[in-house]
Design a protein around this nucleic acid. Structure first.
Length: 328
DNA sequence: AAAGATATCAACCGCATGCTG
DNA sequence: CCAGCATGCGGTTGATATCTT
C-alpha cells in the first residue's frame, strides 16, 4: 500500500517548480507540499470556511479554490479518521453501495471521518475486486450465472436471503418489478450486476423489504412507481439499520454534505434531502443516468422503460436507528 | 537485484446545480 | 431571464509503493 510521504510531495514540488515561481501567476497543481498544507490548515483553523477562492488567496496559496477545498476535505480536515477501514466499515460501505450506488458523497455522509474520495478509492481498488472474487468462487461451485439470485449470492452471500424477500414481493405484487428470469442473458453478463449503482436500476429493490400490507409500487397512482416511503432495508432476515447522516460535526463542510437538495437533478441522478416532508411533496420522474450503469441485467430493465419516483431514501435511512456495530 | 505488473490513493477534470447581480 | 461564479459530485488519471517473476 502506498503511503503518503514527503518524498511524493517533494518530487511534485520539483516538478511544479516552474509554476511556483512568484513571477509566474499560474496556479500550482499536483501534490501538496507540507508547507502548503500548513498554510491551508492554519488559515482554516483561524478563519474558518468561506469562499474557497478567497481562502486560496488569503492563505497565500497559489492554488485554485477548488484544489484547496479538495485538500481540506480529503486530507486536512481535523475530524478525518485515518487508517484502514474496519471490517464493520467495509460491510457498511457494501450495504450502502447496494442501496445508493455510486453516490459516494451520500455513502461518506454515513461514515463519519471518511471522505467520498476515500470510499470511492477503497471500493474501486479493494471491495469491488474482493466481491468479484467471491462471486467467481461461489459461481464455480454451485451457481448458474444466468440466475441473478445466484450472482448476488456469490457477491454477497449474506444477502442471499434478501433475494428471497424480493422474490416474495414479486410474487405478490403487480407491475413494478421486472420478472427476474427476463433480467439477463448469460453471455451479456455483467460480472457485477448487483454492485453497480444499485438504486439506479431495479437491481436495488432486491435489498428492500416491505412491511406487510405495503406492496411495492402500490402506493402511487402510477403503478410503475416504486414508493419507498415505508420500505425498510433488510439484511439477514432482520432489518438492516443504516446509520443516520453524520451529525456530530458542525463545520460548514459537514453541513454541506447534508444539504443536498431534494429531487432529481439535471444529471438524472436523484439527490436527497434531510427534509422528509419536502422530499415527498416533490415528485419527479427519474430518468436515471444510464450510460454506464445499465450493464448486465440493467439493460433489460432500461428496455422495460421503468421509472422510479417519489424516492425518499434519505428519509428512509434517517428513520432507521443507528448501525449497531459502528462505534463513532 | 532488477524489471515488470499491480495496487493504492491524491488530485484533477468536466459537468451540474445553486446563488447572485 | 440570463450570465458569471462558487461549489459539489463522480469519473478518471497518474505517481508511487509494493508485489511478483
Amino acid at each position: 500500500m502506498r503511503k503518503p510521504s514527503e518524498t511524493m510531495g517533494m518530487a511534485m514540488g520539483i516538478k511544479e517548480k516552474a509554476s511556483s515561481n512568484p513571477h509566474n501567476h499560474k496556479l500550482r497543481k499536483g501534490l501538496w507540499s507540507p508547507e502548503e498544507d500548513e498554510k491551508l490548515m492554519r488559515y482554516m483553523l483561524t478563519n474558518g470556511q468561506g469562499c474557497w477562492s478567497d481562502i486560496a488567496r488569503n492563505a497565500g496559496l497559489q492554488r485554485c479554490g477548488k484544489s484547496c477545498r479538495l485538500r481540506w476535505i480529503n486530507y486536512l480536515r481535523p475530524d478525518l479518521k485515518r487508517g484502514a477501514f474496519s471490517p464493520q466499515e467495509e460491510e457498511l460501505i457494501v450495504h450502502l453501495h447496494n442501496i445508493l450506488g455510486n453516490r459516494w458523497s451520500q455513502i461518506a455522509a454515513r461514515l463519519p471521518g471518511r471522505t467520498d474520495n476515500e470510499i470511492k478509492n477503497f471500493w474501486n481498488s479493494t471491495l469491488k475486486k474482493r466481491l468479484k472474487m467471491n462471486s467467481a468462487t461461489s459461481s464455480s461451485n454451485e451457481s448458474d450465472l444466468s440466475n441473478p439470485q445466484d450472482i448476488a449470492a456469490g457477491i454477497m452471500p449474506s444477502f442471499h436471503a434478501q433475494y428471497d424477500v424480493l422474490a416474495t414481493c414479486m410474487d405478490s405484487s403487480p407491475a413494478p418489478f421486472p420478472p427476474m428470469d427476463n433480467i439477463s442473458a448469460p453471455n451479456q453478463f455483467d460480472p457485477f450486476p448487483t454492485l453497480n449503482n444499485r438504486c439506479d436500476t431495479w437491481e436495488g429493490v432486491g435489498f428492500f423489504t416491505f412491511p406487510s400490507g405495503i406492496a411495492p409500487g402500490s402506493m402511487g397512482d402510477d403503478s410503475s412507481y416504486l414508493n419507498l416511503e415505508h420500505a425498510k432495508v433488510g439484511l439477514l432476515g432482520s432489518e438492516f439499520s443504516v446509520p443516520p447522516l453524520a451529525s456530530s460535526t458542525t463545520t460548514t463542510e459537514e453541513n454541506n454534505y447534508r444539504s443536498i437538495g431534494c429531487g432529481m437533478d439535471g444529471k438524472g441522478e436523484n439527490s436527497f434531502s434531510n427534509n422528509n416532508d419536502s422530499c415527498f411533496s416533490n415528485t419527479t420522474t427519474a430518468s436515471f443516468k444510464a450510460e454506464d450503469d445499465m450493464s448486465g441485467f440493467g439493460n433489460n430493465l432500461q428496455a422495460a422503460n421503468l421509472r422510479i419516483g417519489e424516492w425518499d431514501l434519505e428519509g428512509l435511512m434517517d428513520d432507521l436507528p443507528s448501525f449497531p456495530f459502528l462505534d463513532f
